[in-house]
């Protein structure tokens, strides 16, 4: 007779688990939920400040990269997992807008944002910008007495044969940005021949940033890689200093000014949010000086406000490209899939 009782107990436990999950929602929302990607980061004292100012608890749902986070939101459009989605960049923007993800919101804090980053649509608010740039290994070039590359054009020179590793634009966000940079630079007609040149010059393609930067690139600390040029970010050299584990005067890597591609990241109030009021407060907060000043140190991108100070390491070791390459979101939306297919045929087949 023991068995049925044990079964009953097991069934009760399962039921209790279910019941715990179905716990009722309060009528007055006491929390605001931010849906975002894996690269999102924020300092604890900053979230604490938000919670204290608004009396709302900030809950963060995080998973996958920017594309995956957006796709999860698209899947639940109208009945979202949270109140705010953060992490839609220019490359993904048209997909988010076409998917009717967001409600309109114009934050009063927008006035403080650098006019370069004025949003293309009333449903999204710019939060940060980052530039995808070529990085190189200083020591590698110094030891060999070779000049490091100074521009995109240089990459097809014989001098840089078998030195470059890039990410696949079909599977990687910096990889896509670098492809877009070449489209922006060389135009619809000539970017293909640039890539044919790169292929002939021995470019290596890997699927993701992690493998390119931490495994193939020789300049990253601890990397077994042998290639001294990689597609990464304008801020990566600063990260190499901040996270070196010891004081450094000079970063082991440097970013190339030319050929950087700018990505602006946006946030929006999700349509059907349970706490739309809290969502708007969160977006205002993300544009506040406090949050914006935390952006470089936490996420290694630049704030969209020009009036917050940058950490020392950023001023010394990272670059802020004067004139990064860009493409209008509509052009990206219209061309992206075709470009990636064509790129695959040219470089991989």
């Amino acid at each position: 007779m023991r068995r049925p009782r044990a079964l009953l107990a097991a069934a009760l436990v399962l039921l209790a688990l279910l019941a715990a999950g179905c716990g009722g929602e309060d009528d007055v929302p006491t929390e605001v939920v931010l849906v975002t990607h894996d690269s999102f980061a924020v300092s604890k004292d900053v979230t604490a400040a938000f919670e204290q100012e608004t009396g709302l608890k900030l809950k963060i749902l995080q998973g996958g990269d920017a594309g995956e986070a957006l796709n999860r939101a698209l899947l639940t459009a109208g009945d979202p997992q949270g109140d705010v989605l953060f992490g839609v960049d220019d490359n993904l923007l048209s997909r988010a807008l076409d998917g009717d993800l967001f409600d309109e919101y114009r934050s009063p804090q927008l006035d403080a944002v650098d006019p370069d980053y004025t949003p293309p649509d009333d449903r999204v608010t710019p939060i940060d910008h980052g530039e995808v740039c070529l990085n190189y290994d200083r020591a590698w070039f110094r030891e060999r007495g070779v000049a490091p590359p100074g521009s995109l054009d240089d990459l097809i020179l014989n001098r840089y044969r078998n030195l470059l590793v890039v990410e696949n634009p079909a599977t990687s966000s910096p990889g896509l940005a670098f492809l877009l940079a070449t489209v922006a630079r060389y135009g619809d007609e000539r970017w293909q021949s640039f890539w044919r040149g790169l292929r002939a010059n021995g470019v290596r393609v890997v699927d993701g940033w992690e493998e390119a930067y931490t495994q193939q690139f020789s300049g990253a600390a601890g990397s077994p890689g042998k290639r001294p040029i990689v597609v990464s970010y304008a801020t990566s050299p600063a990260a190499e200093v901040i996270f070196a584990g010891k004081p450094l005067d000079e970063s082991p890597t440097a970013a190339v000014e030319d050929g950087c591609f700018r990505q602006v990241e946006y946030a929006g109030v999700l349509r059907g949010a349970r706490n739309a009021e809290g969502a708007r407060k969160l977006i205002d907060f993300m544009l506040s000086e406090r949050f914006q000043a935390d952006v470089p140190g936490s996420m290694f991108v630049y704030p969209v406000r020009g009036d917050v100070p940058l950490p020392d390491a950023f001023r010394k070791h990272a670059i802020q490209p004067e004139q990064p390459l860009t493409l209008p979101p509509d052009d990206i939306a219209a061309g992206r899939d075709g470009w990636v297919d064509e790129w695959t045929r040219i470089v991989l087949r």
Partner: peptide, 26 residues
């Protein structure tokens, strides 16, 4: 897909650190 940010697991955390540049993160 289901882990919450305030409850990360070991594999999820390993991924976070692998995804950031710098010797310390690695």
């Amino acid at each position: 897909f289901v882990a919450r940010a305030e409850w990360p697991t070991l594999p999820v955390s390993i991924f976070r650190f692998l995804g950031r540049p710098g010797a310390e993160n690695q």
